[in-house]
Amino acid sequence: MSRLMRTSEVIGRPVVTLNGQDIAQIKDVVYSAGGGAVGGFTLAGRGLFSGPLKQGLSWSAVMALGPDAVMIRDEDVVSSVTEILDASVRPGGSGGNVLGSEVLTDTGILLGTVVDVILEVSERRTCDVVGYEVSASEALGTHSAKVFLPLPDTLSASGEHVMVPAAAKDFVAHDLAGFGAAVKAFRKNLEGQG
């Protein structure tokens, strides 16, 4: 069984070793624009006065992304943050942040702005970005202010815009519970066309 979760729930979650030490907490979720696979996380310190850390956590080093903590074997599995954040991502952080980016269809219609990103953690221990929670514009024609928009297998995104196929707006879900089915239906629909 796979689980869907919002990245905002993952951010700030403690990173705990099997020795019961909370060595850090999640700061940013880093994913690749290609397949949407989550490559890893940047970390922040746990202390009241501690800021971002120079270490990062690659997805392969994560034992479990649980509802209350991110489990790792021990503190040696962390890597340098530059390995997580590819050199091409502009330094300074906000360059590639998709939170607040505008959602555009490939036909050039603005659907809204990204308020959250939905992750799917599967049984086979993969973690993918499968959709955006979007603060909807009028073009979507929905009555609720926030909707879930499914993503295709491949997508393009920058800190400025995220692109979705025009068909995505026909597969909008209004709650996270129904979203898993919406993603499946949407991807199946895309395959049918191709």
Partner: peptide
Amino acid sequence: VGVGPYAAI
């Protein structure tokens, strides 16, 4: 499995 300052695992 282990016991540390944050939690027992």
